[in-house]
Structures are given as C-alpha cells and as structure tokens.
Design a protein around this nucleic acid. Sequence first.
DNA 1: GTCTATAGAGTGATAGAC
DNA 2: GTCTATCACTCTATAGAC
Lengths: 187, 187
Amino acid sequence: MRKSALSREEMLDRLLEVFRQKGFEGASLVDLMQATSLQKGSLYHHFPGGKGEMAEAVLAHVERLFEAMVFAPLREATTAANGLAAMSRALESYFASGAKVCLPALMGLGASRDQFGAAIEGFFERWIDTLAETLAKDGMPAEQALFASEQMVADIQGGIVLARALGRTEPFLRALGRVRAPTAGAE
Amino acid sequence: MRKSALSREEMLDRLLEVFRQKGFEGASLVDLMQATSLQKGSLYHHFPGGKGEMAEAVLAHVERLFEAMVFAPLREATTAANGLAAMSRALESYFASGAKVCLPALMGLGASRDQFGAAIEGFFERWIDTLAETLAKDGMPAEQALFASEQMVADIQGGIVLARALGRTEPFLRALGRVRAPTAGAE
DNA sequence: GTCTATAGAGTGATAGAC
DNA sequence: GTCTATCACTCTATAGAC
C-alpha cells in the first residue's frame, strides 16, 4: 500500500475543484478528503501545513495550468489576433463557458486574500503582462497595451462574475467575444 | 423591554461590513456579535433564521442602498452621460475606490450562491436593466443598450476583482473612467 | 530494516443553533 | 449561556516497496 493512489497532479486537480466550488473558508477537510479519496493522515502527509498549504499548492497549480494553456500560446502567437483567439479558446474551456469560477479571483475577493495575496497578485500580474506583450506585437505602444490588457482581463473576470450571478453563461461568452474582436473596447 | 442600541439600518450596515470582509462562510457569529455589539441571543432575536437570515437581510439592504445611490440617479438623469457620471461617482465612494468588495459578486462566486441565488440574480439584473434604460435615453437601440450595460457592469466588477487582487485601486478607477467616457468600449 | 504513503482514533477549540 | 456537531489538526500505527 505504499504506491500513491493519485498522482500529485490529479490530487491538485481534485483539491482545486473543491476550492473552486466552496472557497477557502468553505472547504472543509472532510470535503478535501472525499474529493481525493484520502484520509486525514494521508492528506497531512502530502501537505504538512494543512489546508493553507493545500491552497498554496493549488494556486501554484492553477498558475502552471494557465502558463501552459494561456500564457504560452500568447507568447508563441505571431500576431495579436492569433494570440487573443488562442486565449479565448483556452478560457472558454477552462472556465467551462462561465460556469466555473476563477480561484485566484475568488480568493482575492474573500478574506483569504490576506494569507495568499502574493500568489494571487502574481497570477494576475503575469496574465496582464503576458497579454500586453502580445498586443505589443501589432505595434501598440507599451503603456496603451498594458491598459488594454488590464481592461480585457477585467472584462473577462467581470463576465465570470455576471455569468455566475445570473446563472447564465452568455455574459462570459460575450466578454470573450469582445476580447477576440478588440475593434470595440480595447483602446 | 429595553430600547435597542442600534437602529436596524445601522445593524445591517455593520453586518454588511463583516460579510464584505469575510464572506458568508468566513463570517462567524462571534464576528457578527462584535460588529454589532450584540449578544448571541439578541442577534437571534432580530434574525431568528440565524446567519442565513442575516445574509438575506444584508443583501436586501445592499439592494436598497444601490437603489438610492445608483439606480435612482440613473433613472432621473436626462442624458446618458449625466447618468453615467452620477453612477461613477456613487460607485467610487461605495466601493471605497476599489478597496471594498461587492457583496453580491462575492457571494455569487462562492458556495453561498446556492442559498442566495435569487437575491444575487435580482441585484445584477436590476443594475443592468436600469443602466440599459439610461443608455436608451440617448437613442441607443434596446438590445445594444443591454449589451453595453452588461459590458459596463462586467468591466466594473472585473475592476474590483483586479483592484483587490493586485492591492491597487487603479484598475477599478480606470474601469470607472471607461464607463464615464463610453466612446471607447461601450459599443 | 528503512522509507513512504495510507490510515484513523483522538485532541482541543470553535462553529451555529437554541 | 448551553448545547452538540464539526472544525483543523496531531499522533501513532501499519502495509508494502526498496
């Protein structure tokens, strides 16, 4: 019984799902145990720091997922339009068309911001910066690209808020549409 | 029978502040007692349904605040530009320039959405609808006004998310700026 | 034997309800 | 203030791979 039943990746995926659904304060150890099919002792073996260390690891996991799914395609795109299209596609599937929440945003709004501020801040800074570099590929001045990127990320996050609040996915999908066609709204 | 030390309005204001800072799950009865200077028994006298009823009452309170501070000025404005300026001013002070969170948004993202979905949905629907009617005053077609309103609310909510996440108020203030000057971004 | 992952009884503290 | 349930967490034990 020594081999790990779950890979660390799979474990983090399941923990992420619990935190996304219940938030940090709302997620109990029992929830986390059930999601991973692990007992308390096993969870504490992997995360000696308890719930806090789990959340920290999950936030790092999310940033790795974004690096692979969003940031890398943005960097590799040759034109801004291509990059935006790739990002839009990735976000649509990652956020399940607006039904699923952005964990760094959720934790940033709540009280857990105090404990995880650095990871949350890093996540959004990296997103906005990477996006700005992509927009600069079309010759947009650096400062303008930064503002446009901030607006796009804000629009997307607001789209998720509205989609969740209204119980409809359209607000999120329309926000993605605006990002894909920045003729209206990016400058 | 003693006179209650706090008016109901004042009580709701203080409860709101706790829920804004800690979220629904994160707010404990002790937190709520301290914020209101009330004992458990007194709190349960005012809200027999416990924490859930407090949150319900606080959400209704927030909608009343918005009605007075945001929706009414929007309705009374003679031009869209005047309405947007009034809304922008009200939001800047209500959200303390981005340092304070929007409770319906926070609760909509978290698990408390299940319990308070109706109030959260109503809040945002009302906001978007009122805003769309204001934009229609300048002759914008109804459907376009609805999309533009949704985008504005999304941009503002995203601005709050980013302001909190990054620990800077500028993303929120810039979102308000875009709302005030809808030449870039509203259509 | 050692190391690693799983397991679960049991701790005190605190939760929300009444 | 009193209640019980649940909280996050500790500790010790065990099973199997090396």
